[in-house]
């Protein structure tokens, strides 16, 4: 039986340290305040040892200038971890996909560029296969209870409805949907199961949900109430004593199919 997946998310910022700028693993809160955690590649190795099912690596400062920083992290990670990983941040073109894939990424996530140039989804999917095109959707809930997609790291409201956008993404050739609730990012208040379920019911490709995990039971809710195929978390796995192996037992005990060994 196919298992549900636990996916630690590694968010990276380029920060000065000892006179040089280097990639640093951080956690964020509602896409704003951040806390420095450490070296992204050594954290990836810890997740490998803890039998995470996949990883997501996102460069929060990505731009053409520092694309090579991200490529360097991807290269180093691919030499030491033997599980699939998705890379995203600042991807603008099919050429960017090729750069990341040829340096060891298995999938590439697109967010802002997909909203601004939806054809990028079609082109990347046709050229490289749907399996490597992850449509990342960041969203907030408005005061009157509507869900809206935001781009540029949570700075620009688009007016798009995340459910409709996910459906369009699938029809354009995305192979997976990655949902992130900006409101819940870093809050540890639980997964947004309502929006997750709406998307999971409307698309036939796998749905990864993220934002808000603070307890092992939040993962269970993401799977059971949200209907997600995978739950991703950053803050949860960075700070606490909890790790993927402990969360896995909790999920298993809730009767959800999950991988137990690596």
């Amino acid at each position: 039986m196919l298992k549900r997946r636990l996916i630690p998310k590694l968010q990276i910022r380029n920060l000065p340290f000892g006179g040089v700028t280097r990639p640093v693993l951080v956690t964020t809160r509602q896409f704003g305040d951040f806390v420095e955690i450490g070296d992204p590649v050594s954290q990836a190795r810890i997740y490998e040892a803890q039998a995470a099912d996949e990883l997501i690596i996102v460069d929060l400062d990505a731009s053409a200038d520092n694309r090579m920083t991200l490529v360097d992290v991807v290269k180093k990670a691919s030499a030491v971890i033997f599980m699939p990983f998705t890379v995203g941040g600042g991807v603008r073109s099919v050429a960017d996909f090729v750069t990341l894939l040829s340096n060891g990424a298995d999938k590439v996530s697109i967010n802002t560029a997909a909203v601004e140039t939806p054809k990028l989804i079609d082109e990347a999917s046709a050229a490289l296969g749907a399996q490597c095109v992850v449509l990342s959707i960041d969203y907030r809930r408005t005061a009157d209870g509507l869900y809206r997609v935001w781009t540029r790291g949570g700075r620009v409201e688009t007016g798009l409805d995340p459910v409709a956008w996910a459906v369009e993404g699938e029809s354009r050739g995305a192979g997976e949907i990655l949902l992130t609730s900006i409101d819940r990012d870093g809050s540890r208040s639980g997964i947004d199961v309502e929006l997750t379920r709406q998307v999971a019911e409307r698309v036939s490709i796998p749905v990864i949900t993220s934002g808000g995990c603070g307890l092992a039971s939040h993962f269970v809710a993401g799977f059971l109430q949200g209907g997600a195929d995978a739950v991703s978390a950053g803050t949860y796995f960075c700070f606490k004593d909890e790790n993927t192996m402990q969360v896995r037992s909790h999920i298993k005990n809730a009767g959800i199919p999950i991988r137990l060994h690596r």
């Binding site: 039986m1 196919l2 298992k3 997976e176 036939s204 490709i205 796998p206 195929d229 991988r259």
Partner: peptide
């Protein structure tokens, strides 16, 4: 209800 593609770990 099973999704296509099959993505993930299967025994």
């Amino acid at each position: 209800s099973l999704r296509i593609p099959q993505v993930g770990w299967n025994d």
